[in-house]
Design a protein around this nucleic acid. Structure first.
Lengths: 211, 211
DNA sequence: CCGAAAATCTGACGGCCAGTCAGAATCCGT
DNA sequence: ACGGATTCTGACTGGCCGTCAGATTTTCGG
């Protein structure tokens, strides 16, 4: 498996071309954040870096392909979050650890939310590639979460009717979606730190069974 | 406030036109489910009911307006769910009640998921109208959930670090997003009934503090 | 039942963007 | 500074959006 970077036609590209490709990816991420997927036009992405639409199609078969790559890059940034989810949370330090995980997750989310939104939309609409990249990203966290939940079930702190896999998915779901509500919740008095503390308490409770 | 139905130019319309408008809404929902928002074309919606694009624009200023109306209709279907979330769940019957709520929510979701996806996307991308309709829908459930959570906090079954409003939002978030994962989870052995039971157990635990 | 007014529908068009391709511009090794 | 390889783009085709003038259908007073 090669790490070479390819153009849309599959040929390996040189340093100058790699720089152009990177600029296109960055411009795509920027416009996605500013305007959203529904108003994203290849013309605008190209203009953003002072080039023509034809250049974009040298490096990507379509906009989806560029966004898919951004989604993969987001997955890379998600990997370190796993470090916060190692079994062994105690009643004494678990809440603090959960809080640290939430902090890290919030930072991750702030950086990538525009891309993650599109990844999730396309995945839910059935796109094979986006499903794959989303599933891989989610399994990163879920694998660790499952272990922790199994531990809680085995110790009798959690009910046996909790399926570890599904519960892990539910925790990830809660994190993802709750942060999407953030702007509207802020208007109703739920500050970032309230969300942080509540989310940490919930995660701590769900995966360890402590209150 | 009148319940009259209007064309895009604001004029009240008659029975024939109402039927056409309804067919356009249904066709929009159908194609949204089949193809997703990114491939939704006014041409296709019109063709679906054997009319021309110009007809569509008689009734809606754009596709968003039609989807927004479908989202409002979804909110109507969400209202009955509140009945499942009245305070007073006991340790004995709470899990059963939670399960009944989850069943109802899953049915609701199955019916409207394509529209809800777009509603959430547009809301998160900052669209004022979609934010409003989403917030209204979420507050329906959250108002009841908050009451139940406050009860649990007051009784000392739930930690005081749980903000009731945020926790209620987290529960809604978990339901919404977890169901979006359903197809991929099914491939990994998490059946609909596993999801149902786990979700019910989690909701029961989070809002009552019982295990 | 008739004819005119109101309501509903649509053909056709200008404008914008997607995506392609042939060839122009630039780079790089010698 | 020359020639081949790499990178970039002008210009074009085709398709969808959204509009509008006017065609078609329905309604209703007489």
């Amino acid at each position: 498996m090669s790490d070479d970077i390819h153009a849309a036609d599959g040929r390996v590209i040189g340093a100058r071309a790699q720089a152009t490709r990177r600029k296109l990816l960055d411009a795509t991420a920027k416009l996605l954040t500013e305007q959203g997927i529904l108003d994203l036009r290849v013309v605008d992405i190209s203009r953003e870096i002072g080039t023509s639409p034809a250049t974009f199609y040298h490096y990507f078969n379509d906009v989806d392909e560029a966004i898919l790559e951004l989604a993969s890059e987001a997955t890379e940034d998600e990997k370190p979050l796993v470090d916060h989810l190692k079994p062994g949370w105690t009643e004494a330090d678990g809440l603090r650890r959960a809080g640290e995980f939430v902090d890290a997750y919030m930072t991750f989310w702030d950086t990538h939310h525009a891309v993650l939104r599109v990844r999730n939309l396309k995945a839910e609409e059935g796109d094979r590639h986006f499903r794959k990249v989303r599933t891989e990203a989610n399994l990163l966290l879920m694998d660790s979460l499952q272990d922790m939940i199994r531990e809680g079930v085995a110790a009798g702190r959690l009910p046996k009717s909790l399926d570890p896999f599904t519960t892990a998915a539910a925790v990830v779901a809660m994190c993802e979606r709750l942060l999407g509500y953030q702007p509207e919740m802020a208007k109703r008095g739920s500050s970032k730190s309230t969300i942080r503390d509540t989310l940490a308490t919930l995660i701590f409770g769900i995966i360890t069974g402590h209150v």
